[in-house]
Amino acid sequence: MKSDQQIILELKQEKTKQAAFRSLVSTYKERLYWHIRKIVISHDDTDDVLQNTFIKVWRNIDNFREESGLFTWLYRIATNESLTFLNQKKKKTFVGNEESNDYILENLQTDPYVDGDEIQYRLQKAIAQLPDKQRLVFNMRYFDDIKYQDMEKILETSEGALKASYHHAVKKIEEYFKSEE
């Protein structure tokens, strides 16, 4: 497997660009898929957003600044694409209420590729109640164990704000479980 550094170097040269892009897709497709999937929930939506993400990556390769790191850059594009997609869906489906997470809850109930045990499902329902920002931070920290320093670069927010978001998210999930008793 090629290193990020090597992929970046080859992406910048017209001769090796296509092959390097193939390596990039192959290296990051699964990680980005699961990152997007936790945000949009439905498999079909994830597939759309993932393809759009890679198309955006291809289109903007020349604007990529190496100091941000390939991983950070890809996650940032995937996150933005996911949130844009969700907002568009919410506007279309639920008469413009962007705060509503009904679309995510509906996906959770109807997507044929959502299964698992009862506790897993209940945890997802609890996460679905959170506002998008808290949901995003919680997913990245809880499931992917991404460090706050990395999250800071991806989401372009301060570490303090991220910690506060995570703290609020945990409290709300705890309350959700308590309220079910």
């Binding site: 497709k29 699961w34 929930i41 498999h43 959502v114 045990d117 897993q120 945890l123 499931f143």
Partner: peptide, 21 residues
Amino acid sequence: PLEPPFRVPEGYFDTLDDRIE
């Protein structure tokens, strides 16, 4: 931490590269 309860259709990742290309 638990894993999220999501799965993908069989062979999804195998054909993804070609579809993106």
